[in-house]
Simulated scan of single mutants.
Amino acid sequence: MNSVELLLHPVRLRIVQAFLGDRTLTTSELNAELGDVPPGSLYRHMARLVDAGVLEVVTERRVRGTVERTYRLRLDAAQVTPDQLDALGPEDHRRAFMAYIAGVLADFDRYLDRGEIDYVRDGVGYRTLGMWLDDDEFADFVADLRRIVEPRLANTAAPGRKRRLLRTVFIPDGPGTESESTSERR
């Protein structure tokens, strides 16, 4: 199974996302977070991710006659390369994007189901912005975001810190949205 098929399955994508932020989790802890995934299915998907080297066992301990394993994400193995993305057809991209959006919806549902929600306190936000950028300006914008985000990715769990998910989607607007209007071209 190639990494695209492996990582873009909706359940495996949610498993990988649960480990983001350098988290270590047991299968029981992961099961509690992804409570809507049947345990048998969760174990099968975990096994596939371990076999592919995406998840690694960091500790093992005996618990009531069984071995409890703690796993960590190998971020370098959880990547889809630009060449692999280029090889996908429109339906594959549609399926992958739907898996991504399903993960966003599941995360937001879990947030809402907590009961004690406060959008301002929790820093919850979602919006769509439109920016007029040529290709060079867009590349600069993405580089600026990387400079801001990358140092924070090195943060580890610590008292007072909450794991926060940042999701980005960049989509060029449809035809007819170029800055040069028909009247300007005449």
Rank of each mutant, 00 (worst) to 15 (best):
H45C: 13
A32V: 14
V37S: 08
S28N: 03
H45M: 11
E29M: 10
G40D: 01
L25S: 11
L34W: 05
L13H: 09
M46E: 02
Y43F: 13
L13T: 03
T24C: 14
G21A: 14
R23W: 04
D22I: 03
T27N: 12
V16I: 07
F19M: 02
L42H: 08
E29R: 03
V37C: 07
G35N: 09
R44A: 14
L30M: 06
I15G: 08
G35D: 15
N31A: 14
I15R: 06
L30V: 05
D22F: 00
V37A: 08
M46H: 04
L42Y: 03
P39V: 12
L30Y: 03
L20M: 07
R44H: 12
Q17K: 07
T27Y: 10
A32K: 11
G40L: 01
V16M: 01
T26K: 07
L30S: 00
R14G: 15
E29N: 03
A18E: 00
G21M: 08
L20R: 06
Y43P: 03
L34S: 07
L30Q: 01
L30F: 02
S28H: 10
Q17M: 13
E29V: 01
I15D: 06
T26W: 00
D22R: 02
V16R: 01
D36M: 08
T26H: 04
R44C: 10
D36C: 05
G35A: 13
T26S: 14
G35E: 09
T27W: 03
A18M: 05
D36Y: 07
T27V: 15
R23Y: 03
Y43N: 15
T24P: 08
M46P: 00
E33S: 12
T27D: 13
N31S: 15
Y43L: 14
D36T: 14
E33D: 13
M46Q: 05
Y43W: 06
V37Y: 02
D22V: 04
A32F: 10
R23Q: 13
D22M: 05
H45T: 14
M46N: 10
N31V: 10
I15K: 04
A18P: 05
S28V: 04
L25M: 14
